[in-house]
Design a protein around this nucleic acid. Structure first.
Lengths: 139, 139
DNA sequence: GGTTCATTAGTTAGTCATTACCTAATTATA
DNA sequence: TATAATTAGGTAATGACTAACTAATGAACC
């Protein structure tokens, strides 16, 4: 009983370790191993909106516009985002993620995808189905 | 086929989400929701050594002693560590983790433990055994 | 055993670079 | 005149350093 709990912990620890290693690799490949969590979160907010204006991003993140302006300039230098002038209103720019920016802010999902792909390779179809069935019950 | 891969991804995404929520809760309970990753890593180094001297910690982390001195003073203020005078050598202090410090630097493991405990509650013994069997094959 | 001196452990002062944020003033556009 | 974004100048916190310092230890010598 106790043995089973510990065992479950160990197999999940192993899986998580594989996932974390994938995440690290993704960030390293992007040359972003030292990006801060706040930076990742801001990129995630941009990702959620597809493309977003400076004013909107300031509003959504509760920062001032100058703060956003500086941050976006920095992200441009880091090649995470680019800005696109609005065709309709010369005042407005849209902030868009580059491929690098997308990879960085989605690196946890990409890592998880790689983990599940790796699982599908290690296991047969019946095992995968069984896993889905059992794990789907966890709340 | 494609459906199965996506499904596996989704069930694992759900599990990971539960785990991440546990982590956040642990850090919030400790009043440490804004601790930095570097700080967590330093606490993990201290954890790995049980108790460690300033000089040793400087050596292991490749920082200067004044840097370690300041960091540890800050961790003391944050109640993550305390220092213990060596009984043998008046120059030497040992840096030890408080319970809070231990919780903070182990929060990922604690969260994973809570997740696996939750799984054990949701599933019967046969299912748990099956999981262990299948997931143990993943490399 | 006491003294002296070199060494070690850790601290303090001052400093620098970076990140994350601000307001006020400005420029460009509507 | 109002809005969108930028620039200038600023603060606070984090993460790191060197130089100089204090306190304690240990070896050598008397």
């Amino acid at each position: 009983m106790i043995e089973r709990k510990e065992h479950l912990f160990i197999v999940f620890e192993n899986l998580l370790s594989i996932k974390n290693q994938c995440s690290s690799e993704i960030l390293c490949e992007c040359g972003s191993s030292d990006i801060t969590m706040k930076q990742v979160r801001y990129l995630q907010v941009i990702d959620e909106h597809g493309e977003i204006t400076f004013s909107k991003l300031a509003e959504v993140t509760r920062n001032s516009k100058p703060t956003i302006s500086e941050m976006i300039n920095k992200f441009i230098r880091m090649e995470y985002v680019y800005k696109k002038r609005s065709p309709d209103d010369g005042r407005i720019y849209y902030i868009c993620l580059t491929e690098k920016g997308q990879n960085v802010c989605r690196c946890e999902q990409i890592a998880l995808l790689k983990l599940t792909q790796r699982m599908v390779l290690s296991l047969n179809e019946a095992e995968v189905s069984t896993l889905i069935g059992i794990l789907g019950k966890v709340r």
